[in-house]
Design a protein around this nucleic acid. Sequence first.
DNA 1: CGTTATGGTCATAATTTCATCATGTAATAC
DNA 2: GTATTACATGATGAAATTATGACCATAACG
Lengths: 233, 233
Amino acid sequence: MPERTVLIVDDEFAIRDMLRMALEIADYRVEEADNIQDAYTRIVDQRPDIILLDWMLPGGSGIELLRRLKREESTQEIPVIMLTAKTAEDNVIQGLDVGADDYITKPFAPRELIARIRALLRRATPGQEQGRLEVNGLVLDGESRRIFIADRPVDMGPTEFNLLQFFMSHPERAYTRGQLLDHVWGANVYVEERTVDVHIRRLRKALQADEADYSGLIQTVRGTGYRFSARGL
Amino acid sequence: MPERTVLIVDDEFAIRDMLRMALEIADYRVEEADNIQDAYTRIVDQRPDIILLDWMLPGGSGIELLRRLKREESTQEIPVIMLTAKTAEDNVIQGLDVGADDYITKPFAPRELIARIRALLRRATPGQEQGRLEVNGLVLDGESRRIFIADRPVDMGPTEFNLLQFFMSHPERAYTRGQLLDHVWGANVYVEERTVDVHIRRLRKALQADEADYSGLIQTVRGTGYRFSARGL
DNA sequence: CGTTATGGTCATAATTTCATCATGTAATAC
DNA sequence: GTATTACATGATGAAATTATGACCATAACG
């Protein structure tokens, strides 16, 4: 299981520190933010798997951030656990109303927090059902993240694998370099568009095995970008 | 790559100057405005590809302009990056709420700004209507940007493809060379009208496959221009 | 902590595509 | 029938776009 990232948004150092310790023991990667602005930046740029959001924050209450996150499509799916100091029922209701997925009141037992995080992650990660894709004997196994040509495993880097996986699940369609960057690299990644060319080349090279040459499946669409197609060229 | 225009809206000369320099190095065309009024005029008249908007402006805060831009259909699609001072945290949320596409806090590294601009620009203009067009077995697939004759892909240049796409979506109608240039090449492109003839020829040639000859679909309208027609010649 | 892989960028080569020009051919006008 | 105009076509150098190899920084690994 890939390591999950938890973003802690809280202005009190002591709390953050305590949380970080607990989470790291539980084997999560931890990011921290002590204000809304920084939090938003990290969320957009790093896409944590789950967010722990303090209710009371300087410069705008956490609920504003929450509302924003739940409205934006790209961040909607990230589960948020509200951390509330008081047992003020109102806040809890309001928070859940806006879209918090769970809440926990301070002080809390780290054990309980971890449990809730785990529960949310389990639920929120419908998992990218990967499975197995095949085209003319070229096989992609999502589980093991491996490619096979004539039953022989093929060697390629992670990015090339992701690229091929995207292509194989979206065949017969031309994509611009920008679209590929968004889908394969992820949005908010600042990478030169020409970099796509290089990975296309690496992927093509990897698809040239001794047994068969599948590099023709990756087709250049001049003036546009690239396309994966099993239909004859 | 058509040069992109960036409009800087900021009242401080020093900032504008710094931005202009960074942007010009990155090969953007730069427009400047130091107040809302001027900014609005330039946006409407020149339609920049992206706007850098300072939060604090004399004569109405930048958010007013932003709100207006996002309300009007003609300017809605132009991406806006808010420039905010470091201290104002809740401004960020507010700005994003109103429809800013991204924000960056001063002071910032030019490199980061360029990166964000590039990311936004590549996401914008997602592309137009596509789909599949067919005439008597001649198939145009907009998604994959390919032409098929008898299920075999046909080779042609981007311009020929665009030309055919335009024709197939506007059949039975004669167009002058000027109109074709406007629609297929894009407005304000300086190209000889006779150049259209050459591309018509190339398109016709491409439409002559071994299996079938579709070149007759592209008909010359003497004294006027050309027409795409499925009806008998 | 050194070693190896991977990823991103750049410079340059290799291709493809394009806009024009020059010239041939067909269609109208007179 | 001949002049004139409009379109067709082949060739061509330039421009645009993509392919490729090399390099360096950094992450991953042992």
